[in-house]
């Protein structure tokens, strides 16, 4: 899931691992991000209103 916010430093990617199969221990330092072909999500990121991004969404 991609979440775009103005309040993130360019060149930095925030990773939240959720309760899925992504383990934080598999990543560190630098990463690459690409668009994925699959479109399966269960919860979406709609609930993020309460999380770390207290800023209006950008619908680009």
């Amino acid at each position: 899931m991609v979440c775009i916010r103005r309040g993130i430093k360019a060149g930095t990617a925030l990773l939240h691992c959720g309760d899925g199969n992504i383990s934080p221990a598999d990543f560190s330092g630098l990463i690459e991000v690409e668009k994925s072909a699959t479109q399966t999500t269960s919860r979406g990121i709609g609930n993020l209103i309460v999380s770390d991004f207290h800023e209006e969404e950008i619908n680009s």
């Binding site: 899931m1 775009i4 993130i8 991000v33 668009k35 994925s36």
Partner: peptide, 26 residues
């Protein structure tokens, strides 16, 4: 709860042709 997500700045997202809510591979 939300799904796992990757938070990007608008510039970085645009570079990768990613939109809000897209699924991405890292």
């Amino acid at each position: 709860m939300t799904d796992a997500y990757i938070g990007l700045s608008p510039q970085d997202a645009q570079k990768r042709d990613l939109r809000q809510g897209d699924v991405a591979t890292i």
